[in-house]
């Protein structure tokens, strides 16, 4: 990488952010430091340096997600990028256009940053092979959602001042969750003591080899936890296919005050949203003093600013302009 006096220091090595699995602990630390700075700057109400000025960012969402898309949009705009949102309707896919067709079409518009969400695991990686811009995985199927794990880590770090040595319990639908996979990858790299808490039908096969302790009893799983990270249970999994009913799930795996009391005093309560109140989490807990759920949203924007900034530093155009 060409280093000139004016060019900003690289934060990560890769030209894309496709998965946490691709990042080293040092890179994760550097991204979190940068995000931390952006979070502070935003809180102080200061304006941000327009490090993405002149760059085009396209948010390509094959799967609807208002909050993640808005978060990326805001992050890009705060740093001066020209942001275009593209929701790929089911109809254009029904017309036979493939992911790669869409990618090639967009590539021809020469964006610099492409933020992609897709319902199939691996689809973002496939797309990244075919475009010439930086690609951020905003969630692919049940594979990864790297910026979510980074923002979760940032939220924890700001509250508990560290990641190493903490006990984090991820609870709920681990099997179908990309948030869980990215968090498992990140927490393992950062030497967190990780626990996976779920009914056996919502644990993925081979879970025992992921470097985490497995609990099928939530009360056991929460003992000694510093952080309780809840996952969303998709509606279609509540109807008897994976668990018998929402009310039975809530009875045994819902996080209410009683359940939370089992965890360490002052344990953080997290949720990637959107929440099913009364299914996986009780409203009093979700809005309670231990909940950092709204702060996760705030850290989401800061984290995505850091990611976009980091990737822009590796762009050929940026490097040339700086040289």
């Amino acid at each position: 990488m060409a280093k000139t006096s004016s060019s900003p220091r690289p934060v990560i090595e890769s030209n894309h952010l496709l998965s946490i699995a691709d990042l080293s602990p040092t890179e994760i630390g550097a991204l979190l430091d940068l995000a931390d700075k952006y979070a502070d700057d935003t809180r102080k109400g200061g304006k941000h340096a327009k490090v993405l000025k002149g760059l085009t960012q396209i948010n390509l969402f094959f799967e609807n997600s208002t909050r993640t898309q808005s978060s990326f949009e805001l992050a890009g705009k705060r740093l001066g990028a020209d942001v275009l949102n593209m929701a790929v309707s089911a109809s254009s896919l029904a017309k036979g256009e493939t992911v790669l067709d869409t990618a090639m079409t967009l590539n021809a518009m020469r964006p610099h940053l492409l933020i992609v969400r897709h319902q199939s695991s691996g689809a973002v990686e496939l797309l990244a092979q075919k475009v010439s811009c930086a690609v951020v995985n905003a969630g692919d199927g049940q594979h990864e959602h790297p910026t979510q794990a980074l923002l979760d880590a940032l939220t924890i770090r700001r509250h508990l001042k560290r990641l190493e040595g903490l006990t984090v319990a991820i609870c709920g639908d681990i099997a179908h969750s990309r948030v869980a996979r990215s968090n498992i990858a990140l927490m393992s790299k950062m030497n967190v003591r990780l626990r996976l808490v779920a009914p056996p039908t919502l644990l993925p096969s081979g879970a025992e080899n992921l470097g985490a302790e497995i609990f099928t009893d939530m009360q056991e799983g929460l003992k000694g936890a510093d952080v309780v990270m809840m996952l969303r249970l998709q509606l279609e999994r509540m109807n008897g296919s994976f668990i018998p009913s929402a009310r039975e799930y809530y009875r045994f795996f819902g996080l209410d005050q009683q359940m939370l009391a089992i965890a360490n005093e002052g344990a953080l309560v997290m949720h990637p949203g959107p929440m099913n109140r009364g299914v996986e989490i009780d409203s009093i807990v979700a809005d309670g003093v231990q909940s950092v759920i709204r702060e996760q949203v705030e850290m989401g924007v800061a984290t995505r600013m850091a990611v976009l900034d980091a990737l822009s530093r590796n762009l050929e155009t940026t490097r040339k302009a700086d040289a």
Binding site: S121, G141, E144, P204, S205, G206
Partner: peptide, 15 residues
């Protein structure tokens, strides 16, 4: 194949 690899890739497995 259902197993650790499938889980890491987020792909549904065939046991």
């Amino acid at each position: 194949h259902a197993g650790e690899s499938a889980t890491r890739l987020g792909l549904p497995g065939i046991p």
